[in-house]
Nucleic acid binder design. Structure first.
Lengths: 168, 168
DNA sequence: GCGGTTATATATACCCCCTATCCATGAGGG
DNA sequence: CCCTCATGGATAGGGGGTATATATAACCGC
């Protein structure tokens, strides 16, 4: 979130509402809609940290807005973030917690959990296929996002198989 | 986190420190060490919500402790959580943000980003292999966690290839 | 033209997770 | 005797997420 806003502001000054629209347009429907509240909170924090600088702009025909531009410190922070590799995926997995801990409490058994979760994953997979078909073919960014989600989901499905083999 | 603690308390009453140790022992080194602070915060929230009930226990030879046990409402909440499928993976990917947004700011190019990230992922992959070898072979839970992380990582690597093909 | 929806624009409150750090006690060891 | 480690707990601060409140203006139907 912070990175995304800073990167967008590195291109050109903008205000919160514009940034939300830019994110939606760039990443398409595949990307979970960025919450507008989070954007404003993040912007004010970035300003507090001196990475961006805002200025109120009065508008006659529309509500007033606050336009931010990136600062020198902001550009440095952005370069620093980009320079270091992004951390890998979290090993923490909520479903796995369930799978390991729930049977001991007697609320369910592992096989039922796995089958339910598999159905859920397959449902999501179908949803992603529909999303890919509905999304603009030429928005390669959105298509790639969906493809990435599908790869991860397939990994989850494969893992589910392994869990079923290994446990019980 | 909430789920894990509630599930552990469904088996038997325990205090925070014990729960931390139980998590570490169950999930092994592969699991990012649960932060002890988070455990206490979560416990107090669970108690506020009436899902668990704590009681102070004085100890002569050790610091006093606070032992929690699950309530009836807690058992119901646990059953409810277990009954509904766990949400799938997040489509939000920080690296992807970098890949899409950073080149426009002139701080780097896509190929450099991808190559750096691939090296990073391969490094993590090697680390996971070492972890799997170091971890107790008989701890199937820990081995499965590592295997899951490797499957996700492989999906990330595959995705990286796709991004390289599609972008630029 | 009047009332409802939609678009523009921002702010705040609340929940959750994570890390770091502080506090306290007692046991073991150099 | 002091230092470290294990036991036990608490809190502050940062960040991410959702929901909701607050304005204004445009559009649209009846």
């Amino acid at each position: 979130m912070r990175l995304a806003l800073l990167a967008l502001l590195a291109k050109e000054p903008a205000h919160g509402y514009e940034l939300k629209q830019a994110l939606e347009q760039t990443f398409g429907a595949a990307y979970p809609q960025p919450n507008i509240g989070q954007i404003y909170v993040t912007l004010s924090r970035l300003e507090q940290n001196g990475l961006i600088q805002g200025q109120d702009v009065n508008q006659s025909r529309r509500p007033n807005k606050r336009v931010y531009e990136i600062t020198e410190a902001g550009r440095e922070a952005l370069a620093g973030w980009v320079a270091e590799p992004t951390e890998g995926p979290r090993v923490r997995d909520e479903f796995f917690m369930k799978l390991v801990l729930a049977p001991a409490t007697g609320v369910t058994d592992r096989l039922a959990l796995i089958n339910k979760q598999r159905r859920h994953y397959l449902n999501i997979m179908r949803g992603l296929s529909r999303l890919a078909a509905a999304e603009d073919r030429n928005n390669r960014v959105a298509q790639l996002l969906i493809e990435g989600a599908m790869l991860h989901l397939q990994a989850d499905l494969d893992w589910l198989e392994r869990c079923q083999e290994e446990l019980d």
